[in-house]
Each structure stands twice: as C-alpha cells, then as structure tokens.
C-alpha cells in the first residue's frame, strides 16, 4: 500500500484531503463491485466483475479480442460508467465523479495513439493535460520535459505528431499521460506494432514507474510481457473474470488459457515441454530459463 505522504509527492492535487467523503476503509486504490456494463443496444460486455487493485501492483489484463479487457479499464477513469454496480477510484465513485477528477488519479494511454493525439507539435501534445490542470508554467515545463525525456522524444519537441513514426506516436501518447504524474497508469496494449527495441524501452519505462510506487495496469496480448513484468494477471473471458492469480499460477492453467483464446509465452512453453525430459523448474523469463537449464544440464 502507498503511504499517504508518499502519494502526495505527486504534484497533482488529487490527494485524499480534498475528498472529505472519501472512504478510508480499504487499501485498494481501485475497487470494483458487482460491475456490469452493456454498450447501448448490445449484450453485456462486463458481467458481475469484482476486483480490488492494490497500490503498487503491476497487473496484466489479458483475454481474447472482445473479452472485455478494454471495456473494464475504461471504467477506471470514468470513460465508461457502470450499468450496474460500482467502481471506486481512490474512494471516488466513478458514477458521481467527473472524468477530470478521475484523470488526476488514473492516467490512460490508449491502444491507438491516433485516437489520443490531436495537437500540432510534440510539446503541445505532451503538455496539454498539465495546462488543463492549471499548473504554473514552470511545473508544466518541467513535467513535460521529464515525460518527453522518459520516452526519448525530447529532441523532437517542435515536430508535428503526424511526422512521427507509429512507434514514436505511441511514445508521445504515453508521454502526455506520464506528464500528469498520476498514481495509477493504464496502458492499453502498449507494445502493439512496436519493434523489439521500442517494446523494451516502453516496458523499461513502465517498470521504472512501477518501481517509483505507481500502480500499473496493462492490457496486452503479449504473453511474454505478462510473464516478464506482471505481479498479477487478470484473465477476462466473455465479460467475466475467468482467473485472477500470479503469472506462474495462470500459466499452470494451460487448458483455461486455451479456452480463453490465449497461449503460453514461448519461454514457458519450452520449459513446460522439457518436463518430459525431467526438467522441473518454472521459469518465466529467458534469463531464468537459461540459468535453470544450465543447472539442470550440469547436474
């Protein structure tokens, strides 16, 4: 759990003191209670979801296309509001809170950067959210500059976003949210369409933010990312939580993964196959696999 003083370190004024009716009974920064949601005129996209997201967790949300992953995370900053049930974000009920309040707590990086980017320069895009928060120009300058540095775009601050590559636009979209210094960060498929180095860079960034104490929620199809970075995995299927456990536990349930349109990450698949040859370790990353294999081969 994040201690309150540690949380106030963030320059945004989202802190608990401004919300007198805030419920102090739970440690969870996001509480989901009996959440159901239907898009207008459609069958339900989320059904009776119950979750507690604790401060400091690195949660991967996985599931097939259309399983409700993105619909779920859009509830966390009020982009979508429950049809039934409640979502509490740092004690704020999303049904009775404005997106502008919630967005001080939950930063949301969209899957497709082009749905997010609209400004005429990299700098303008990255600083837009801060300007809305009416911060002084020095803080805007510093936080924007830090965010652009974090994604290696500080050299391109005057560039038009359309003149960036897809990977760079993805990083710009991330920077404009990073600049807000929210305690919770939602990354919707952050590495889709990224090459290996950009993917590494984005994940190192996420790891760094997590290490600073932020809560990271990542929607992804990339099982290798789940294995390598997540502390907790939520598997969505047909709008319901099919499984909520550690990566190791989730990957043990191969049948369930297959039934939900997923697959084991390659490293885990290889380690699993090697059980037949007497290998009994359960590594999640390539480095762990190499290390445990060397030990096994030598003994």
């Amino acid at each position: 759990m994040l201690a309150p003083d540690r949380r106030r370190r963030n320059p945004g004024d989202w802190g608990a003191s401004l919300v007198p009716e805030r419920q102090l009974t739970s440690e969870a920064i996001i509480k989901v209670r009996d959440l159901s949601y239907s898009y207008p005129g459609e069958i339900s996209a989320l059904r009776s979801v119950n979750l507690d997201i604790l401060p400091g967790e690195f949660v991967a949300i996985i599931g097939s296309n259309g399983s409700g992953k993105t619909t779920l995370v859009k509830q966390f900053n009020g982009l979508l509001k429950p049809s039934q049930g409640h979502v509490l974000v740092d004690g704020l009920d999303t049904r009775s809170s404005r997106v502008s309040e919630l967005s001080r707590i939950v930063g949301f990086v969209f899957q497709n950067p082009d749905h997010q980017i609209f400004a005429y320069s990299v700098w303008e895009e990255a600083s837009f959210g801060l300007k809305l928060q009416k911060l002084d120009s020095e803080s805007v300058e510093r936080q924007t500059s830090d965010a652009l540095k974090a994604v290696s775009l500080d050299g391109l601050r005057d560039r038009h976003p359309r003149a960036l590559s897809r990977g760079q636009r993805q990083r710009l979209a991330t920077a404009s949210i990073l600049a807000l210094n929210t305690p919770v960060l939602v990354l919707d498929e952050p590495t889709t369409g990224q090459d290996y180095l950009s993917r590494r860079q984005i994940m190192e960034l996420a790891v760094g933010l997590h290490a600073e104490g932020r809560t990271v929620l990542m929607v992804t199809h990339d099982m290798a990312l789940v294995a390598e970075y997540a502390t907790r995995v939520i598997v969505m299927q047909d709008g319901e939580v099919a499984c909520d456990a550690s990566p190791k536990e989730v990957f043990e349930r191969e049948e369930m993964l297959r039934a939900t349109g997923l697959d084991l990450p390659p490293v885990v698949k290889i380690a699993r196959g090697l059980r037949e040859f007497g290998f009994s370790e359960t590594p999640l990353t390539q480095a762990e696999l190499v290390e445990t294999l060397l030990t096994a081969i030598r003994s």
Partner: peptide, 9 residues
C-alpha cells in the same frame, strides 16, 4: 499485431 494469440494463429 492487434490480435490475440489464437486469432493470430
């Protein structure tokens, strides 16, 4: 790039 593992397959 936008697909889950089984749809990709």
């Amino acid at each position: 790039s936008n697909l889950d593992p089984q749809s990709s397959q």
